[in-house]
């Protein structure tokens, strides 16, 4: 069995999550601080979600060519929704008393965001990242259709040659990966929640 494919899959997932946080977090904050663009941002990420994953990858491949970049860009667009959404909701639901207190202390909006609101919204934001990660593990199977490698290659080969062992290997590896990330991230999130509630 080819375990390098497991790592390749993991690599695709981690890169996707990294970049969706880099893009999604600021977008969520933007939606929170500027009501005028809020609707557009939230609407745009929701529209992205309605495009079938395979089609999204197929279109990006025409612009960027095949390979890992295409896959990562496609998966990032796909995992923006939970991150942007949860960042916005998390920030919005920070207790207004605490927000007022920050204002009262003379903190600028930027300072309040960095030192008060984002830390308090972190558990919610992290939940968004967790959902994005687990979803990406599954969707990344399509990577193999556009030259991105990963466990999708094993699964496709298994289906093509009707080799149940290969199909099972690919699927079980994916399931284990999804469960491990889920459990690990719930654990981290619980620790985050404890910190913030102290």
């Amino acid at each position: 069995m080819d375990f390098s494919l497991v790592f390749e899959h993991l690599y695709l997932v981690l890169m996707t999550v990294l970049f969706s946080v880099i893009v999604g977090l600021p977008l969520g904050v933007l939606a929170y601080i500027t009501p005028s663009v809020r609707k557009i941002v939230l609407w745009a990420v929701e529209i992205l979600q309605t495009i079938p994953a395979l089609a999204l990858l197929g279109l990006i491949i025409i612009a960027l060519g095949p390979g890992k970049t295409t896959v990562i860009v496609g998966l990032v667009l796909y995992s923006l929704l939970p991150i942007v959404h949860n960042t916005y909701i998390g920030l919005e639901s920070v207790d207004s008393g605490i927000k007022e207190a920050g204002k009262g202390m003379g903190l600028t909006q930027f300072d309040r965001l960095i030192s008060v609101e984002i830390p308090l919204a972190l558990p919610m934001i992290f939940t968004g990242i967790r959902i994005a990660t687990v979803t990406t593990i599954g969707v990344a199977v399509f990577a193999t259709s556009v030259g991105g490698g990963g466990l999708g290659a094993v699964i496709y080969k298994g289906i093509r040659t009707q080799n149940m062992e290969l199909i099972l290997f690919g699927t079980v590896a994916l399931m284990i990966m999804a469960i491990l990330f889920d459990v690990l991230m719930i654990w981290i999130n619980n620790r985050l929640t404890k910190r913030t509630s102290n």
């Binding site: 593990i137 199977v141 999708g152 699964i155 496709y156 699927t171 994916l174």
Partner: peptide, 8 residues
């Protein structure tokens, strides 16, 4: 079971 990819 939800983590089983659709193509599989």
């Amino acid at each position: 079971f939800q983590t089983i990819p659709g193509i599989v």
